[in-house]
Design a protein around this nucleic acid. Structure first.
Lengths: 138, 138
DNA sequence: GTTGGTGCAAATGATTTGCAAAAGG
DNA sequence: CCTTTTGCAAATCATTTGCACCAAC
């Protein structure tokens, strides 16, 4: 990885490029959707069995600060992480069957600007978890 | 409390009216906003010192099922409960200073129907926690 | 009497932290 | 070298659970 933009960002922020860190980055990056900390750990360990869970959490903190990954609480004590790509999107989580579908950003576009213009609050309309009941479960 | 509508609801659902339960109900009811489980426990204990935390959690589960209280995760491991009143409302939580302001329901009104009509998913647009940065902290 | 509810103590489970050793720059 | 990062083990902390006893109804 000669000039991986993620590696550059980490370096610029004064972080070191350790193998553990790069494995965690690549686990997040290659996943199509969310991963829990445990998922990430399992994936990383497939390559390198001695990585510790605390390292995953510490690295996720760094990546969140750099806005490279998002963190979402999807209920049931599940916190979930996702590599941030071009288009933000949101999640519809069925409380009955647990299924998760994605929702395009456009539904939330107006909301953010309306809130800011009338309250001054600047919301992170980035990665919402919306609970409810899916089509099949109704 | 001769015919407290809450007591009636509990009975109809096949629950018993214990003093602990009624104290928990009234703690939630009298609070102007959210309470954590610990807040509720503290308030209840001011009247009756031997109530256990597990009773609070068990009762909150019952009240949630009856849709008498809402449960919101406001981050940092804080889960917060609130008596459901007439008008639903939402919360703007500042990630910097931790302040919480309320947001009227109208901002979310369209969102729910738009999501349902295009995806079939029926969201609980009831009690949202919106993170971001408040006016002062920007 | 039954059934559900309670307190207590112990278990859980995700996340965090202290510390000494190891490694990146 | 100097500082950050790591692994390990132990600590947190909110929430849950098993169980014997009590209390509503």
């Amino acid at each position: 990885m000669p000039d991986d933009p993620t590696a550059v960002l980490l370096k610029e922020a004064g972080h070191k490029l350790t193998p553990q860190r790069m494995l965690i980055v690549s686990a997040c990056r290659k996943a199509p959707g969310h991963l829990s900390a445990a998922d990430i750990l399992a994936e990383v360990r497939r390559q390198f069995a001695y990585v510790d869970g605390s390292t995953v959490y510490r690295t996720l903190t760094v990546l969140k600060d750099l806005r490279l990954v998002s963190e979402t609480d999807i209920g049931e004590g599940e916190t979930v992480y996702e590599w941030i790509r071009e288009e933000p999107h949101h999640h519809l989580i069925c409380k009955r069957c647990g299924s998760i579908e994605q929702l395009e950003h456009r539904y939330f576009e107006d909301l953010g600007s309306q809130i800011t213009s009338s309250t001054g609050f600047r919301p992170d309309i980035d990665h919402f978890a919306v609970f409810g009941t899916c089509n099949e479960c109704q």
